[in-house]
Design a protein around this nucleic acid. Structure first.
Lengths: 146, 146
DNA sequence: ACTTGCAATGGGAACCATTCTCGTTCTAAC
DNA sequence: GTTAGAACGAGAATGGTTCCCATTGCAAGT
């Protein structure tokens, strides 16, 4: 399962002329294990003790390669997750307005269909070209609710 | 119209024991005029030439008072807009993934109803308490598509 | 009007997540 | 095995945001 992701990542990197090195493999592994977006600090301080500069550089590179996505949550910290194309799981986020943490969740199919329909009929008027949507629930997580 | 907003803001500030000073009035006026969230730099460098430290302090204070909301867009810059309770306009954002700019837009009622229904039936299971939702369209603005 | 107390202000320093720099190390191809 | 270029890693630099503190402004009581 995680190995499958690594294979896909290797293929993507090769396609854009980048190597699948140890540090990049470890980043992908940490992201694949988590069921929520991780901050750079969590990746640096995780099981692998990655150096900071390499971590940020590789995250940017993996983002350019379409392997990871950067998401901004309730606070100013950037968080990273694997692209949905790799995980196969279209999902949204529960964002805690108190501590900024994020959790994944999947919306009912009816909501997704409603969104798709609405976006299709949008698009006109403005010169804006929509590629994707972002649907988050803002609230208080179990920890902060006490 | 803008005066109405100022009256509401004054009432809210008074309720939490804060004054409705000139600098705060100017912040609210700038935000009320714009039909999109503004960055702190745009507010500082706007028509009124506000000092930086006072601007950030007043934005934080107005946020605590429930007058303005801080939204994070495509880039790392914080943006600010008036609370929907003051403007009466429930809206979402078009976020340009290229330049980070944001524009307001209103979703069709059918989508809003679908979201409300889905969120109502959510809530269970996890200990997460949702207060609000955030629905953004990510894409390319007219300027960047050029 | 004149204090008096406290909130608000504004310039600049501090903070901290992120990015850049640069010399070293690794990798892959020849 | 050599070599050219990519990747690495430590630390400095950057920049948006926050903090500090001396000064100013406001409002109530005399």
């Amino acid at each position: 399962m995680v190995d499958d992701v690594q294979t896909l990542v290797a293929a993507r990197l090769r396609r854009v002329g980048q190597r699948h090195t140890g540090g990049r493999r470890q980043l992908v592994e940490s992201l694949a294990r988590a069921e929520r977006p991780l901050t750079a600090a969590e990746l640096v301080g995780g099981d692998h003790r990655l150096p900071q500069s390499t971590t940020y550089r590789n995250l940017a590179l993996l983002e350019r390669a379409g392997v990871v996505h950067r998401v901004m949550g309730g606070d100013e910290l950037a968080r990273f997750e694997l692209a949905e194309e790799l995980t196969g799981r279209h999902h949204h986020h529960l964002v805690c307005v108190s501590c900024g943490s994020m959790e994944d969740f999947e919306a009912p199919g009816s909501v997704e269909r409603g969104l798709a329909a609405a976006f299709g009929q949008f698009q006109a008027g403005t010169g804006f070209r929509a590629h994707a949507h972002r649907l988050d629930l803002l609230g208080t997580c179990a920890k902060c609710a006490g």
